[in-house]
Simulated scan of single mutants.
Amino acid sequence: MSEATETPEGQVADAVKGNWVDHWAPAPTRPYLRLSRADRPIGTWLLLLPCWWGVMLAAAADPAGLNWFDLWIVLGCGIGAFLMRGAGCTWNDITDRDFDAAVARTKSRPIPSGQVTPKLALAWLVAQSLLAFLILVTFNVNAILLGLLSLLPVAIYPFAKRFTWWPQVFLGLAFNWGALLAWTAHTGSLGWPAVLMYLGGISWTLFYDTIYAHQDKEDDALIGVKSTARLFGDQTRQWLRGFLALSVALLMVAVLVALVPQGNVLSLVIALAGVWAMGWHMAWQLQRLKIDDGEACLMLFRSNRDAGLLPALFFAVAALV
């Protein structure tokens, strides 16, 4: 019997302990929820937070401020992030099933462990995508078009580690798309602040996913999978320091471009404080980084929920001022 099938009740090795899927979800649904990473909510947060950046900064830049539809954008993006993160993870596991079977941390996942067949996983992928599309069509036309366009980086990402040392860039392209979409859902059109936020988010993704990838670098080297963790090696800390600086700089410029024309100094200072707080949190992670300690890397990776929440909350306050 393989180690994967010995995992209690089909639980995945790197799931959050005590998660609701393993304890409360109906047994027949658990393999599919695990396939969607519902037992590991950090990915949903990392997909959702750029959406909240986008809608809140757009509202702060709008003389009318927040409106009732913004509440639906916030909620709709939350549901959509859960569904599309699940669909993306399902697609990733379908394409990576042979790689996952060869890596200690991932061979307990539903497909390589035999809990779900690739055909049923594909059906689950379609179901999640259709539900997410029903939410998308409640937004304006430009936001809908952006949402459909986001499928391109989502489809490419699982293959990136086969042909580039920078697969984290492709993850960043997919995971930060919400900054473009949510800004457009509020304003009706894409703007430079959203683009700058998007680029800052990609740099942030390079930061946190390089930390994450250090968990698998030995297995990745054995099976020939590329990553920035393997590329940077002992120089990781220096690279991450650069990504930190770039993330903060791009988000600051996004705030300045969005809010300086409004002339509200208090709103501007509050929004900038949110960016600085995120930068402080990333610096805190760097101080505690041990690239050869997998558990520490996972803890720091998960802490990026809090890092990304900081600008979202400060942007919301700026929108209310």
Rank of each mutant, 00 (worst) to 15 (best):
L136W: 05
L256H: 02
V253W: 06
V141T: 14
R37T: 07
P50R: 12
A277F: 04
L244S: 07
V275C: 04
I211P: 01
G43A: 11
L125G: 03
A316L: 15
L310A: 15
Y32A: 11
A213H: 03
N304W: 03
V255S: 09
D234R: 11
L173W: 11
M299I: 05
A271V: 00
I42M: 09
Q128G: 06
M252Q: 09
G201A: 05
V195T: 12
I135G: 12
C297S: 13
L256T: 05
W24V: 10
D209A: 12
K226E: 08
S303I: 00
W165H: 09
M299G: 06
Q128Y: 02
I111N: 08
I42L: 08
S113E: 06
T95G: 06
R162F: 04
V269C: 12
T106F: 01
H281M: 10
A245K: 03
L246G: 05
A101R: 13
V260Q: 10
A312M: 08
E3K: 13
W91K: 03
T90A: 15
I223Y: 03
G86C: 00
L256S: 11
V275R: 11
Q235K: 14
F314E: 09
W24H: 10
A174S: 13
S303L: 02
W183V: 08
D292V: 05
A87K: 00
T29Q: 13
A160S: 10
L47P: 01
Q235G: 08
L272I: 15
R34I: 00
L268G: 05
W284G: 02
N92D: 15
D96P: 01
W68I: 10
G78V: 02
W192S: 12
T236L: 10
V16I: 12
A59E: 10
I42H: 13
V260Y: 03
W192K: 07
T7H: 14
Q262E: 14
A64R: 09
S150H: 09
A58R: 05
P50K: 11
L46D: 08
L300P: 00
S267T: 08
F139P: 04
G274T: 01
A58P: 06
P167M: 13
